[in-house]
Design a protein around this nucleic acid. Structure first.
Lengths: 140, 140
DNA sequence: CTGCCTGCAAATAGTTTGCAAGTTA
DNA sequence: TAACTTGCAAACTATTTGCAGGCAG
């Protein structure tokens, strides 16, 4: 898997020290390829690294977010926990199953919409976030 | 102001007991006409009603949400607090200033989009949420 | 007068922080 | 070896809950 090397390389480029914890977090996120909570990541990694702490996971995720390696998003309508997703170039949104929680990515339908709103409101638009909720084929 | 009467009427229709706390919360939300946090509401109301508790505000907001009188939304990108907004018939989204926090409503640009995604993914779409972030004319 | 609502206090969930010891460059 | 990172414990923020007395219907 040369994605592992890419991720290590990416940290070096950004001047972020390469530690076991950071690589394990990033590799897990790359392998799962869906948004995960800090607790998800912690639960999976503590099996192979029992000394790992949830606070370390949070500290590193926050650092990745600051450096635009990862984005932090809300997924569940009724839970206030954050999800984290490895940024791999493509701006997209999410469709979330209300029953089983499955998440699928959606390409962005709002390319010109930002300009339109910018013109209408005189706001300078910086970003937008869209989520759809529904029932997946298995749950509906 | 006959909105006050409307709100009291609405509670009765829904079989929700009319209490001082409930009316004060709803009237404040109607008067402010922008999404508010439970703490915003509590801070404003405790001046005239010092015995009011934040837990009472939360309990009532949750009841209003269950009964579709109020919607619960996330507004701030980096804070995990919920905002609550009185539902007044019109489905809309929000444009939020990243600097001063001002919030303006946007009409929904996604009328057909849900159908399109439903066809593409075979999910049954239940709802969607869109937020734009930017800088308002005063802050940019 | 009965059941729902509130005040009050304490608990919970998610996340952050301070500090000393360990690790990276 | 200097600066950064981690483990660990404790704090913090937003929200919820249990219980006993109070109020609405």
């Amino acid at each position: 898997m040369n994605q592992k090397l890419d991720l290590e390389e990416k940290l070096k480029e950004l001047g972020i020290r390469v530690t076991r914890q950071r690589l394990e977090i990033l590799n897990l996120m790359a392998a799962q390829n869906t948004p995960l909570t800090a607790a998800d990541i912690f639960d999976k990694l503590k099996k192979s690294n029992p000394k790992l702490r949830l606070s370390t996971v949070y500290r590193n995720l926050n650092k990745f977010v600051e450096n635009n390696l990862v984005s932090k998003i809300e997924i569940k309508m009724d839970k206030k926990e954050s999800y984290f997703e490895l940024l791999q170039g493509n701006h997209h949104h999410h469709l979330i199953c209300l029953k089983c929680g499955k998440i699928i990515p959606l390409k962005c339908p709002l390319k010109n919409y930002e300009n339109k709103i910018s013109d209408q409101t005189n706001y300078q638009i910086v970003e937008h976030r869209l989520k759809l909720y529904g029932l997946c084929p298995d749950c509906k």
